[in-house]
Design a protein around this nucleic acid. Structure first.
Lengths: 205, 205, 205, 205
DNA sequence: CATGAATGAGCCTTCATTCAT
DNA sequence: TATGAATGAAGGCTCATTCAT
């Protein structure tokens, strides 16, 4: 344990994570061989075990590490957004997609592996993903307190549903490896759908 | 043909599918051994290969078979719904959850395995899942043509997003094995969110 | 466990034990590969795991099985010995060597592996070996009760020491793969040494 | 030569041997990792390879070194013994046990590893152990020449048997880590058994 | 059709040894 | 000399699949 941790910051550790990300995105956790990760990372097989306890631990560490990074970026960028909660919600949707487009391997990895691992990597509760959802949830609650958002909906439920909607759409884009051309259009549509609903109103022309 | 049909309706084939469903729901595709499926089904290991080409084929067949059944039930029940498209949308959401609650193993299997398998079981395009989405899509389009639903949103995108929202919420319920007590409440909230949007309006009290 | 046991009597199980015995005798437990045992036994690697839980279990089972057989033969042959305890002691020494000569692999295996395994195969107490020592111990005690043997020596200690003497001499013979020519001579010498002691007496000419 | 001597007397070399002894005694040669020896010795893994060619060489060197020391002490103490060969034999038995009690790790190491290594560490003939046996053998021969010991027994065979007896009893004491309380009693019994034999005589009261 | 013992390819992981610092 | 991170060969074991019965 003490040994299988080494420095949390280490160029080699990072290269292994990077290699694992690429490999997992390409072939999925269960279809990726440790030796493939090693060669993707340019290290020997055994080296992986200097930094991670085993293959499961590598998966978990990858989640933790990348989600942490995502959360940090999202938080920072969200704080820079001018305007009210509605603006921030739109920004959230946009950032979610933008991050995915900038990091297609990461997007593919998360959309495809998140569920499996949450369930089958024993004892792993995936706290970082929970943190991600919290950002969304707090945004909803802020809007509810401020009067911009309706208050008859449970913020936890809404954040889940919203995440699911984004995630599923992203999955589609990701698997198709859609070029980021009309992504802004799709972003806009999703924001509108979520904020204004599906029902026809006169104000929608 | 006659032979193939006899096979497709064989009670043993169904028992194997049933066993696989239980096992996959419990432990996931990759963590389930063929021998476990066999013992769940009460048949010998080798028997499975009389009905399915291999483990992958068993997974795919299970998808096809169960999705077919789901689509059938959904279609039937949806046709029985009185009222306009909005009513039908609400009914869709309700039925989606209701089916999941009635078939927890199936729900767990689909929410957790759908993505992985769609991507990694080689050459499998999952046409039945596409059919499922189509139902939703056509409903949206019907509403758009009829004027109940706004027309500035792409029906394919919306149906994806909607499915994603339902699926993610269901995942939560499923993993927690939440009892179906306040599911109607959650169903209602989701319907309202989708139809009317998150924004506060005077008509929501 | 239920699976890793199969029939205690099975020609395949016995062939694996036989192969393991040959391999262990030749190269020792730690230097023998499971695949070598398999090919020595003429089965596939995986087959071994149908009959034994793992490599350790194979070692232990081999001990149990062969010691049981040795004890049985020894007991039978000892009962057939005419005469008093001294005769039986001499017979014991002779039989010990005779069995070793008839089964050189077994002799080599036991003399070389017994100590290691007793200590390092976790939790294994080697009850069958204890049984073997008991035979000797009871013989001593019988002689002590009957007046043929001196009573100022602890029977457990004596049996240990006697076994050690035989075992060490056997080790020598075994490693040298000495032909059984003057083994009767050595047998005789050891018996005399043990029974009459090293000290010079007039009656020894 | 000068260099080799500097190495052979290096305190670091001795610390490594000491660490290896502790580790081998505790877990056996094959279950001890080179890194464990290094940490027992308080040196880096690589340092071991500055003093020893490889793990096998470390084992062999440990034997040579410790046996040399044992032989030296035994010879010295034996020379100080007053009296005839019988006295010396008794002293030998006593010293054998005494050394073991003073150096339990060494005792455990030798009783457990001697056989394995003699056979499986390639090309190693273990000359120092032969020297040890020689001491015993010469003692026997001296007694035979002097008339105290019977001459109808082969001195090599006797010394082997005697060593085996002592070794096996010691193994028992060692594994049980018996406290050295009644060891003198056991020592006495063994001496008597060896010298006078097991048979009952009037002179034993 | 059904069985389940047997197969053997393949993978994760360990650990003795090396070598750049 | 000393270090310890890195290496990569090797082995125990699993499990999907086959096939003789």
């Amino acid at each position: 344990m003490a040994e299988a941790d080494r420095q949390r910051d280490s160029p080699k550790r990072e290269r292994i994570l990077q290699g694992a990300l690429r490999a997992f995105a390409k072939k999925g956790f269960y279809n990726t061989r440790v030796s493939e990760i090693a060669s993707e990372a340019g290290v020997a097989d055994g080296t992986i075990y200097l930094y991670f306890k085993n293959k499961d631990d590598l998966l978990i560490s990858l989640f933790e590490d990348r989600m942490e990074w995502v959360i940090e970026r999202l938080t920072t960028e969200l704080q820079a957004v001018e305007g009210g909660v509605l603006e921030k919600l739109r920004a959230f949707v946009g950032l979610h997609f933008q991050l995915a487009i900038e990091n297609p391997d990461l997007a593919e990895f998360i959309t495809v592996e998140l569920r499996q691992s949450a369930k089958f990597v024993k004892e792993y509760e995936n706290p970082k993903f929970a943190d991600y959802l919290k950002i969304l949830q707090f945004l909803i609650e802020e809007g509810q307190r401020g009067g911009e958002l309706r208050t008859d909906l449970d913020s936890r439920l809404v954040s889940r549903a919203l995440f699911g909607a984004l995630d599923e759409v992203l999955l589609q884009l990701t698997l198709a490896r859609t070029p980021p051309k009309d992504v802004t259009e799709e972003t806009g549509q999703i924001s509108r759908m979520i904020i204004d609903g599906l029902v026809h109103r006169d104000e929608h022309t």
